[in-house]
Design a protein around this nucleic acid. Structure first.
Length: 416
RNA sequence: GUGGCUGUGGUGAAGCGGUUAACACAAACGACUGUGACUCGUUCAUCCGUGGGUUCGAAUCCCAUCAGCCACCCCA
């Protein structure tokens, strides 16, 4: 029995990788337009980093982390998300020293031990952004606008932006209590999951899918009505900025985020095209995280998108690449010349394919067709004696004689 | 961690107790001995996820196991 890969750890095959390149280069292009720079951080961090930032009681930390003890007896974890590591690095290297504002982006694999399903894998990839050092709502709007810009760049208009505010350490606890009181009164009507949520994460009960819970919570107090004046003002201004530049959004007061460090603005880019997974990208503000991790008191806001989920939305497109030229040859003398030309042309920036086996001309032509090559250069004994070859335009079906001079061939291929 | 569905070649699949395990696509070669796409022909699963059982006989029934998918929880 051949060895197989690990559950939830997927190979991204050459065909698929084209889509990934497309997404990654769009991200780089757009984010850099907004002044963000890439940061590359390790995949492994001390376990403590995640328990302190994401939150000890969250499912991610409680049961989904790939944690182990290394040979030096250190408790380490394969990162389940990117923000914590980026902030650790930010603090460790005092990136705040150079400029008040830091704009960073990252991309790479994340790991969570979950049961795989559509759009969810144990090793998955995120492209994320962090804007640190600004608490003005303009930063919130800027990040959201950039996220929308990125999706527009990919030609995806379907996912919609939903925003909410989770309040701050000032106003959230009292809202949370208010909500718990509300839930307690109708605990009987809630599903078993929500009875549990009532205990550890009452906010979650608000976006329960069960019909009974939806009915029971229609009149639930809204976070947005219970924000302190600072948070309310921040949320209002964020929306004003979004309106100013015409970024479409909707408010979803029942949206909950899974990580403990979020404050104030939170958001998701949701779609109905991913099965049970609706969030393609999500994020929020984290104004106390950096200080909590032992850094200076600086606010931040960011998001991460699930690359696999974006790939799923891109399913229709064909990213197949085809070579500029295919060289077909007949006989050993022609084989050498074909090899010489192929190398010379490749160095000139022309992509060339060849049949290494040198089978029948028919077979080689079929191969040229299969590659969808723009041109085929046919090199036989007769041509070789004359110092020429036939260059065939595969779409038009016409062919002309060309001298065996790489520069000539380059110009003919490029001018087409 | 829980639940449901599915497992036949490179792919999509038919077959539902006795078949040479259909068909289609892909692939290779040939008809066209130096020219692709169309057409035609030939080749391409001694084996039906794996292990065991029932039976004269199993891809087809039973059990176990593994894998995949989807959903719940949770999340990008």
């Amino acid at each position: 029995m051949a060895i197989t890969g690990i559950k939830g750890f997927n190979d991204i095959l050459p065909n698929e990788v084209e889509k990934w390149h497309h997404i990654e280069s769009a991200a780089r292009r757009v984010f850099e337009l907004y002044g963000f720079s890439e940061i590359r951080i390790p995949v492994l961090e001390k376990t403590e980093l995640f328990s302190r930032s994401i939150g000890d009681a969250t499912d991610i930390v409680e049961k989904e982390m790939y944690s182990f003890t290394d040979k030096g007896e250190n408790r380490v974890t394969m990162r389940p998300e990117g923000t914590a590591g980026v902030m650790r690095s930010f603090i460790e290297h005092k990136l705040y020293a150079g400029d008040q504002v830091s704009k960073l982006y990252y991309l790479g694999p994340m790991f969570r031990y979950e049961r795989p399903q559509k759009g969810r894998y144990r090793q998955f990839h995120q492209i994320g952004v962090e804007l640190v050092g600004v608490d003005d709502p303009m930063a919130d709007a800027q990040v959201l606008t950039m996220l929308q810009h990125f999706f527009a760049e990919l030609g995806l208009h379907e996912p919609t932006l939903q925003i909410n505010s989770l309040g701050c350490p000032e106003c959230r606890p009292s809202y949370r209590q208010k909500l718990r009181d509300f839930l307690l009164e109708r605990l009987e009507r809630l599903c078993d999951d929500c009875k549990r949520r009532y205990e550890n994460n009452p906010l979650r009960a608000l976006d329960c899918k069960a019909a009974g819970c939806r009915e029971a919570t229609v009149d639930a107090p809204s976070v947005l009505d219970n924000l302190c004046s600072g948070c309310a003002d921040h949320f209002e201004k964020t929306q004003n900025y979004l309106r100013v530049n015409g970024t479409p959004y909707e408010i979803n007061a029942r949206m909950v985020r899974g990580l403990d460090y979020y404050t104030r603005t939170t958001f998701e880019l949701v779609t109905g095209l991913l099965g049970a997974q609706s969030a393609v990208a999500a994020g929020g503000r984290y104004d106390s995280l950096i200080e909590q991790l032992g850094g200076p008191s600086l606010p931040g806001i960011g998001f991460a998108m699930g690359v696999e989920r974006v790939v799923l939305l891109l399913n229709q497109d064909d990213f197949r690449k085809s070579p500029d030229l295919f060289i077909a040859f007949l006989g050993e003398a022609a084989r050498k010349e074909a090899f010489r030309l192929m190398c010379a042309l490749q160095q000139e920036g022309i992509s060339v394919e060849i049949d290494y086996e040198g089978k029948s001309l028919k077979s080689q032509m079929r191969r040229a067709d299969k590659f969808n090559s723009r041109f085929t250069l046919i090199l036989g004994e007769d041509e070789l004696r004359k110092g020429t070859a036939s260059l065939k335009d595969m779409d038009k079906g016409v062919q002309v004689d060309v001298p065996l001079v790489p520069e000539k061939i380059v110009s003919m291929v490029q001018s087409a």
